[in-house]
Design a protein around this nucleic acid. Structure first.
Lengths: 206, 206, 206, 206
DNA sequence: TATGAATGAGGATTCATTCAT
DNA sequence: AATGAATGAATCCTCATTCAT
């Protein structure tokens, strides 16, 4: 019944080790950045005696990074998706996305910081980053068709919003402000984005 | 007027060498990113036979990076400042800043790419990045007082706008689109920012 | 008749496992050479999930290599011996040896390639290589006594013939030529060796 | 007047270091074989404090090996070429080649052993090995046209003779026999090759 | 009997920096 | 003022082997 004949199943201990290493890697990347997140640093952080251990469980640095991204993606998705889906309408969903993303900083600061750093500096871009941009774009496009967003270049705005969101998140993660402040920050940013995409008022400047 | 009495004056040749190295460093950083911009790569690009030359003229990598940032700052400022100062009013100046910054991609692509990469990845942030944020903030604050910007958290918006601008610039620098397209992109982004900060229309949703 | 009283008998499964590993090792060595034939590569080729399996059944790399050599020796011997023994006379037997050895390339290419690589690069030489040289020498010596070979330094010629044969075999194994071409090659080489060892004709250059 | 604008000139010390490293590398390869000739072993043998030194002077292992082959080639050529050119006629030249090659063992044993090992195990083959085979083949072909060699497959015989010669040389280099014995060995081998390629006597077995 | 996990030494290579000249 | 040479730590990765289960 195995759906993948080429890959042997993972034992419990292996999965545990991999998870342990991935967790350490995420924390180290969040702490010192991808560029300085060497195997030895990660191994030390994980309490492993040698870097060989990591190479044993992961095919290479790319593989480890991919595992980190996958893990982070799972965590973020678990938090954000229900909140986004609970929102009704394009505008409310945009707001929910932004606010839940900012709120994540208080819950999983390391994951958030690491992901942004990886997306910027590792070769992970194509897959992960474009997926998000595509999501944004599609959301804007359908929202424009529904008349709840004004006309604008969806690609550019997607890019700007995503990077702006990242910047806020990274900055916040560096300070780790109070939960209230975080909530306020999310709302502030959501406001900004909603206003920036709102259709012109009837009888407006047209 | 020298603020550092312990620093001897630089001779002409030394300055020339430094300039040559800085130029090469900027190009290499723009090309392969800060992380991979090693001394040997920079030396090779500069036509120098050894990395010792670089260490001789700069106290270390930090010093070289600082020199690069200073040089880039000069270049960018020379291009952008007159255009911004030619604009009248807070909104027009915001627009001028954004548009001239995007336009820079067509004029000094290497400088633009390198600076953004340095700001993100080197430890240069404090100095250069904060200066820009402060500038934005101050502009927003006075604009709000003049009533041409709606009330918002100036720090957050400064951060978001700056990073969004960077993202657009980096993306554009990767493709090097036609000048016309670059102009359109600048206008699109300026529109976005102006709308996001515009005061509510009279009799609006208030 | 066992010459080693300290070695317990092998069970069926153990023998099967060993055989499986040896077969894989031979194929890998033939494919990538002894130097790159790591345990992990062999394990992967054998469909084993870890190299521990190999270390469990063999005392070390030397032991595995010895087992490979023994296995190959059996296979080669089974093919060549009847053909050599079917030949009558020293010259015909020399010819039979050479021709059947070259012919082996078409039948057991992996074994042939692996053996030569092992003999050259592993420390296996003493045992296996010397046995062959001794065989050659003895054959030449008795042939000389019978007057069918001219006088020459048997050791040197044995060495030269063996290595020449190996070179031809390795080259042929790389191309895997048609059976006919292989037969021609064997005959060509046998001719060469027979001529090189033939006694001077009566009334010759003497 | 430099004939190579892309490559800066080598200083005296650099050339000296390179030569020192190459010499050490040749000795180590001759001693333990290419497979085990690691940078650290070579560095230790050369009295260098780190392997970084080698990487500093050579672009990589390939580069170092290439330099070794070039050096060996120079040495061998200087010894063998005059001896071969002094010989008159195809047969005498074949003899001179074989004898001077064997004699080399007494003069430059390390170079001879290292070269054979490199040719067999490094990726140097294409260039160096084929050159020698081509040389042999061409010599045989023109000799056949001149009627001093019998008809035979030049490629195969070239291969066999070259590998036989190598085997003799390697074996001799391992024992380092007396000069007299070396001379005898060369003559024996030359005899063998000459006989193997000699035309059938008039009124022979035809 | 088998095996997955772990180990630690060793592989080549790159790096920023120092130093004598 | 300049430079070529040297350094040694750090990079990721592979290796054969061991061990508890």
């Amino acid at each position: 019944m195995s759906y993948c004949l080429l890959m042997r199943a993972r034992t419990f201990t292996e999965s545990a080790r991999r998870a342990q290493i991935v967790t350490s890697a995420i924390e180290v990347i969040a702490d010192v950045g991808y560029a300085k997140a060497s195997f030895s640093r990660i191994a030390k952080h994980a309490g492993l005696s040698s870097t060989g251990m990591i190479s044993y469980h992961f095919a290479g640095k790319e593989d480890l990074v991919a595992a980190c991204v996958a893990e982070i993606d799972t965590v973020l998705r678990a938090y954000m998706e229900p909140r986004i889906e609970a929102a009704v309408g394009h505008v409310a969903q945009l707001r929910a996305y932004v606010e839940s993303n900012v709120a994540m900083v208080g819950v999983h600061p390391a994951e958030v910081k690491a992901l942004i750093d990886l997306v910027r500096n590792a070769g992970t871009q194509s897959a992960s980053v474009n997926a998000r941009l595509d999501l944004f774009e599609e959301h804007f496009r359908t929202g424009q068709e529904a008349g709840v967003f004004r006309p604008f270049d969806t690609r550019t705005v997607a890019l700007v919003f995503a990077s702006g969101l990242d910047a806020v998140v990274v900055t916040a993660a560096a300070d780790l402000p109070e939960p209230d402040e975080l909530t306020r920050l999310g709302r502030e940013l959501a406001d900004l984005y909603v206003r920036a995409t709102a259709p012109d008022p009837l009888g407006g400047q047209a």
